[in-house]
Design a protein around this nucleic acid. Structure first.
Lengths: 257, 257
DNA sequence: CCATCTTTGTGCACGCGTTCACAAAGACAT
DNA sequence: ATGTCTTTGTGAACGCGTGCACAAAGATGG
């Protein structure tokens, strides 16, 4: 694979677009399935179909990684699995901590996709003393007092936050202070982090609301009126009327710190 | 699918860009918090900070909804909450079914963000007969035999799939056939649906892999090598080596270099 | 009523991502 | 070897999203 003898390949034009990075796991999953069926090669068309994307997009994505295909044939499945795994950093072990062992935290701890692909649940952490020592997914839950030590002892750089929103920021701060530089946030809160720390958020409520928007749009196209009474709305600018202080709070529940 | 000819004009709705729609729930959350503190008005700068976005972006987003602000003053919180809620379709009740009551499904059923904001868990459905009748989050789990009836009886248009990946597509097919037109998919699978059906996917494994990529990048810039042996890789084109067979659909696949 | 000050709403430019369309590259048959 | 056929890799065009910068709008004070 003569891609030019770059003696310092570390920073070699890693211009892999973010959008491409986000799709690599998708390709990897499809390729892994093919690999298990011992399929030796796959064309961009087939793989794109399996991954649910456009074949041109897939080829362009792969072009950022290098020329790993063979014209007239396709891509070697095993080789591509390796290349993508390496590019994503999955050939090494990533210890991960999950903070907040409620329903969601427990679900993640049990999630198979976690354990595979180089991710290892190094610790489950919860602020509730009653949780400490409990076994979840075969791992003993530890109290959050020892968070810093757990992080440094295990060399953890990725943290998953599944706490109630009220404490998410302080948990985040502690994680970052302890050395975590990547955070996957499930709490419905905007996290503020220093430069150099990556945060990705997964927000179930937001996803649902986006679906609702499109759903309403579909319904509106069919029964095109119904929502015509825009006059029956609150005054555009007026005194804040706290009478309708609905229980609209998004917050699931407050939690013991 | 991919008939190609039917070029979908993306967001035909009200001209509201998809990117804006995805941020509206974020604004709504911040506004709700302000509303609970009885804050009457808020400037684009303040609200943007609370939502973690650029203020210019926020103003442009709102401009798609209409001119709801007052120059020199800002936005009326209550009024904006209403407008965004209406735009997102949250002023109506959305019955939702969750299919697959494993750890994750149970977590979602208990998730507070579900119940609020107009979403109502109409039913919990599982294929395991042993689950039927069990109470989860105060709701009795029903067997998947009655899926179609449940959907139509409750007028459900939004379905959440938290099943194992192997059955996700068939569950999806049944949901769609029964009348569901929006699906939130947590299973690590690419779902194929007819036109007119929206699918959003939440994939924990993918999020982690994206984080790992950036984490590796950071580490590479600091440690500046370690990934130097590009020669010790499998042959570019060779026989499929099925020595690394994994149980689940997620295999580590390749050994560390 | 006028001046000043604050904040919105938006025209514009730029960069990223997507898609098309095709030349180049290689496999394969003759 | 040569021609044909398949499939990759990519140049180029296009559209969307983002951020800047500023004029317009309205509030506020004298």
């Amino acid at each position: 694979m003569a891609t030019g003898r770059t003696h310092r390949p570390a920073t070699r034009s890693r211009g892999i677009p973010e959008a491409t990075v986000a799709r690599l796991p998708l390709y990897l999953r499809a390729l892994t399935a093919l690999s298990e069926r011992s399929v030796p090669t796959v064309s961009s068309e087939e793989l794109a179909a399996a991954a649910g994307v456009n074949s041109a997009k897939l080829r362009k994505d792969f072009s950022y990684l290098g020329s790993y295909g063979t014209r007239g044939v396709g891509y070697d499945v095993e080789y591509l699995v390796y290349q993508i795994s390496r590019e994503l950093g999955l050939t090494q072990d990533w210890p991960v901590v999950i903070v907040g062992i409620g329903n969601l935290g427990a679900a993640l701890a049990n999630y198979g996709g976690f354990a595979s692909r180089g991710f290892r649940v190094a610790a489950l952490i919860d602020a509730d003393p009653a949780m400490a020592g409990k076994q979840v997914a075969g791992i003993s839950v530890q109290h959050s007092d020892g968070l810093e030590k757990i992080i440094s002892d295990n060399g953890v750089s990725i943290g998953v936050i599944t706490t109630p929103p009220g404490v998410a920021q302080q948990v985040c701060d502690r994680l970052v202070a302890a050395g975590v530089t990547s955070i996957l946030n499930f709490a419905p809160t905007v996290l503020t982090v220093p430069d150099g720390v990556d945060v990705r958020k997964v927000d179930l409520s937001i996803e649902l609301q986006i679906l609702a928007f499109h759903e309403q749009r579909k319904a509106g196209e069919a029964g095109e009126e119904a929502a015509a009474n825009e006059s029956a709305v609150p005054a555009p600018v007026g005194p804040a009327d706290p009478t309708d202080q609905g229980p609209d709070g998004d917050v699931p529940a407050v939690m013991p710190a």
